[in-house]
Amino acid sequence: MLARLTLTDFRNHPALDLAPGPGFVCLHGANGAGKTNILEAVSMLAPGRGLRGSALSEMARSNGPGGWSVSAALGDGTVLGTGTLATAPERRIVRINSASAAVNSLAEWLAVLWLTPAMDRLFSGPAGDRRRFLDRLVLALEPGHAHHASRYEAAMRARNKLLAEPEGADPEWLSALEAGMAEHGEALGAARARTVEALGQQLAATPEDLFARPAIVLDQPTHADLAARLRANRGRDAGAGRATEGPHRQDLAVTHAAKAQPAARCSTGEQKALLLGLVLAHAALVTHRRGAAPILLLDEVAAHLDPGRRAALFGRLEGRGQVWMTATEAALFDGVGEATMVHVA
């Protein structure tokens, strides 16, 4: 859990110092007050660009000095910090107990998961959105996943650039890049497959309630001979301007188990329920695997739930670690039990 959260010049907050308790942390206030900005700050204590996926420079306060910082003391006394300097607005700095650290090392200290209104159409949107969602689930279970993802992407970008050279690409350089893509790509695909299998088992063991049960499958498993396939596809990939095979084309296929219907064809309410079911089952899996619950960030999660489903959600979240939620009205948290209630104005 976070025992203390401190923000400086982050989004609309010149300064914020918050001491949340364990369990529920409920942020309520008017639209535009900065509730989601606080959740985004917490999400920056994990690798990646946070729950909005914004550029680092966009997180700096308007009319502020240009840089920003987020710092958190964990329950065990560890202090995590991240931010940017005004002189390098797109270069992220990470410190753990005041010592410089790599961004990906944050995953070893915290698992952070989130749901935002923008994710409500995850199942009917592009495959890239579901792939990024899946990678966030994998990262919470296997912190090393971020390393393989970044190395694979770097090798793929270099290969695409090399294939686009008009005078022709150096075959030996291409082979080296393809070997890197194969090494890290196979690790990526294997980690995704492990997570999907374990999560599927967790979903099958989840008791029935008011939330629809999803069934999941990893589409397009990674080929074991990826390097050979990349080498054979050089001509096609040069014409396409991209790699046409590899784990960057995988997708997470989700269906409504009771209806045997693809999630993309379900109603908006059913899709939200399926997404909640996935995240809650994954949180239980992370707690079992890591011995510590992930931090959950749920933005406006109760706004479109009827009272029965809202109560069922709070019941499933009870005792699941630190859960941060936002709402425009405090009344939407009725029935949540003991919580840190924060009015954001």
Rank of each mutant, 00 (worst) to 15 (best):
A303V: 11
P262T: 12
V138P: 04
R52A: 06
D209P: 06
M325H: 08
T82H: 03
E172W: 08
R265I: 00
L274T: 10
M119G: 04
G185T: 10
R121L: 07
S71L: 14
H147A: 13
L305E: 04
L18E: 02
I295L: 09
L298T: 02
A293H: 07
A204N: 06
N160P: 06
G67C: 12
R121C: 00
A205H: 01
D170Q: 08
A55R: 15
A169D: 07
L80Q: 06
P14M: 05
D9C: 12
H223L: 13
G239M: 12
E186N: 14
L199Q: 03
G48N: 10
E108H: 14
E183K: 14
T78I: 11
T255Q: 08
W173Q: 10
S62Q: 14
H184M: 02
A146M: 08
A258H: 06
M156E: 14
L313H: 04
V42Y: 03
E197W: 02
P65F: 03
R157G: 00
G66V: 13
V94N: 05
V217H: 03
R309K: 10
L313T: 08
F10S: 13
L313Y: 09
T255W: 12
P294L: 09
I96N: 01
R231F: 00
R316E: 07
G125R: 08
V301M: 03
Q322D: 07
L18P: 07
E208L: 15
L203K: 01
T244K: 09
L218M: 04
